[in-house]
Design a protein around this nucleic acid. Structure first.
Lengths: 234, 234
DNA sequence: CATTGTGAAGTGATTCACAGCA
DNA sequence: TGCTGTGAATCACTTCACAATG
């Protein structure tokens, strides 16, 4: 098994080694989703092959990924769905619910605030922040839109550690700074800019135009290769 | 599928195309965004160091990435912003605009339909599709919501090759199949399921809960390491 | 005996470090 | 001189292939 020298020597092992590759971590939620789907359909046990199919990866990768968490399968049989599901949820940190603040209640922020899927996946939208005074007090999904300058209070009161930025690009860095100052240390950024954050703060970004552009690149290449074929270029 | 627009024929000496790493392709849109930002601020020239800063990557990676496209810099000087911007846009396939259809005009679909940022980035939302008859004909951002069974016609009429799925999970595979049947070969999927598509169709997925869960994992680890420190465990 | 768990091999991406050029 | 472009080295991730095992 593992035994790489990470930290400067531990006098002893604290928990089964925390060296899970980032790529694996990014897939754990997918496995969780797949397991929940199987459980909902009444499936109680699944092989790595079946699970991998449901998650859209190959089975070797799935087994390797799971091996970083521990040995939760049974050789010759497979994995018990609900048990594995629990183990992954625990690993991700979903034994507790996480409170989230959404900043920027425009079209996208509104959609996120109303999205019902977060609750079942371990997240609770606990506060909505905007900077437009005309919207203060407006209720969305049972929550009042609150001014940005109350961020510190709201973050503290609700024990919020995850912030979602859904503002236009020109406000995003400012909002980000305010979130960090308020104590938020994980940020999901929808604004199309690179955020600067201090050490210790995690940022993940979702830029829809970028996703489309990546598709466009491949789309263009498909179109071109058709042209090539028609021209007998190969 | 329409679209051809290739370079002025192919007796070019070096075809820099073949084999740009996927990781590089995924960053080209980021460089494009950074260059646009610089251009907007009147910057006409930038070193790899400056550009990399604006894009949130290190300069070695940026130079290596750009080297796959061609040699667009000047040693000792840097890169001409507008020239490089054009070259990247061309590489991605943004010399043309891409028509996009959004399927599922719920909260998220609505937000996407209204989002003004697509236009400036090479995309035009050309059609909105839903399955709820009570919404047929409703106008959003100047477009009528159209029934799913008119997808084929709409895709053909508007030469659409990119589809966005913003439906609930239970409709998504069906919608996906319909899109593919209609001739769409690139799909951006917001539904929290794994889509099955035939060879040659590209899918990119955005799952907001998964992004939050990845943040939660790191958040949990930060919290735990604080506990470890307090307990003197290291 | 079917299936897991995992070393070893393979592949791809990143970073280093410096030659080559304006 | 200063910065790009790029081989070589390194690091990270994936896949292979099979011994271990319930």
């Amino acid at each position: 098994m593992t035994s790489r020298s990470r930290k400067p020597v531990g006098s002893r092992e604290v928990r089964p080694d925390r060296g899970i590759p980032e790529a694996t971590i990014a897939r754990l939620p997918i496995y969780l989703r797949a397991l929940t789907g199987l459980a909902d359909r009444g499936v109680t046990s699944a092989s790595s092959e079946e699970l991998a199919g449901a998650a859209g990866v190959n089975s070797a990768k799935l087994r390797k990924d799971l091996s970083y968490l521990g040995t939760y399968g049974t050789r010759g049989v497979g994995y018990e769905v609900s048990y594995l599901r629990y183990q992954i949820a625990r690993e991700i940190g979903l034994t507790q619910d996480w409170n989230v603040v959404i900043v920027g209640i425009g079209n996208l922020g509104l959609a996120l605030a109303k999205y019902s899927g977060f609750a079942s996946r371990g997240f609770c939208v606990a506060a909505l922040i905007d900077t437009d005074p005309s919207r203060y007090g407006e209720k969305v999904a049972g929550l009042e839109i609150t001014p940005l300058d109350q961020l510190d209070r709201v973050v503290a009161e609700c024990s919020i550690s995850i912030g979602v930025i859904a503002t236009p690009a020109n406000n995003a860095q400012n909002v980000c700074d305010r979130l960090v100052a308020a104590g938020v240390s994980s940020i999901l950024n929808f604004a199309p800019i690179v955020l600067n954050v201090p050490e210790g703060v995690d940022v993940r970004k979702v830029d829809l135009s970028i996703e489309l552009q990546i598709l466009a690149y491949h789309e263009q290449r498909k179109a071109n290769s058709v042209v090539d074929l028609e021209a007998g270029a190969l």
